[in-house]
Lab assay of single mutants.
Amino acid sequence: RGFLEKAAVKKMAKAIMADPNKADEVYKKWADKGYTLTQMSNFLKSKTAGKYDRVYNGYVIHLD
């Protein structure tokens, strides 16, 4: 289950990176699912340092 969630989160993160207008909708879905910042950090780990920082930081702001 965790692997599928991670894959889904990364897919949506890539969608945000391609079209930032989708961010609020995606952040709301993640918040509704109760994803914590720790979970998001783990889901968005990448071999490329900083690749998903913008998405993660946007989610931090959304939760605030």
Rank of each mutant, 00 (worst) to 15 (best):
Lys11Glu: 11
Asp32Arg: 08
Lys28Met: 08
Tyr56Val: 07
Ala8Arg: 13
Ala49Trp: 07
Glu25Gln: 09
Asp24Asn: 10
Tyr35Cys: 06
Gly58Asp: 05
Lys47Thr: 14
Asp32Lys: 11
Ala49Ser: 11
Thr38Cys: 15
Val55Phe: 02
Leu37Pro: 10
Gly58Glu: 05
Leu44Gln: 00
Ser41Lys: 15
Arg54Cys: 15
Tyr56Gly: 01
Ser46Cys: 12
Asp19Tyr: 07
Ile16Ala: 06
Asn57Asp: 15
Lys22Met: 14
Lys45Asp: 10
Arg54Glu: 15
Asn21Cys: 15
Asp24Gly: 10
Leu44Gly: 01
Trp30Asn: 01
Lys51Asp: 05
Phe43Glu: 02
Lys29Ala: 14
Tyr59Ile: 03
Lys10Glu: 08
Lys22Leu: 14
Ser41His: 13
Leu4Arg: 15
Ala8Phe: 09
Met12Asp: 15
Ala18Met: 12
Arg54Ala: 15
Gln39Trp: 04
Lys47Arg: 09
Gly34Ile: 02
Leu63Val: 05
Lys6Val: 12
Tyr56Ala: 01
Tyr59Gly: 00
Thr48Gln: 10
Leu37Trp: 03
Arg54Pro: 13
Val26Ser: 03
Phe3Trp: 14
Ala23Ser: 08
Asp32Gln: 12
Arg1Glu: 12
Ala13Phe: 03
Leu37Met: 06
Ala8Glu: 13
Gly50Gln: 05
Leu4Trp: 14
Val9Gly: 01
Arg54Asp: 15
Asp19Val: 04
Met40Leu: 13
Leu44Asn: 00
Lys51His: 06
Asp19Thr: 05
Arg1Gly: 14
Lys14Gln: 14
Tyr59His: 01
His62Ile: 04
Met40Ile: 15
Asp19Ala: 06
Lys51Tyr: 13
Glu25Ile: 06
Ser41Asp: 09
His62Asn: 02
Ile16His: 00
Val26Ile: 14
Met40Thr: 01
Thr36Cys: 06
Ile61Ser: 11
Leu37Val: 09
Lys11Ser: 09
Leu44Met: 02
Asp64Met: 15
Thr48Asp: 11
Tyr27Glu: 01
Val9Cys: 06
Lys45Trp: 08
Lys28Glu: 07
His62Trp: 15
Ile16Leu: 07
Lys51Ile: 09
Asp64Phe: 10
Tyr27Val: 01
Lys22Arg: 12
Leu4Ser: 15
Met12Thr: 04
Leu63Ser: 02
Leu37Asn: 04
Tyr27His: 01
Tyr56Leu: 15
Thr38Ala: 14
Asn57Glu: 15
Lys10Pro: 01
Lys6Trp: 10
Ala18Cys: 14
Asp53Met: 06
Tyr52Thr: 02
Ala49Glu: 13
Asn21Met: 13
Phe3Ala: 14
Tyr56Glu: 02
Val9Thr: 03
Tyr59Met: 02
Asp53Glu: 09
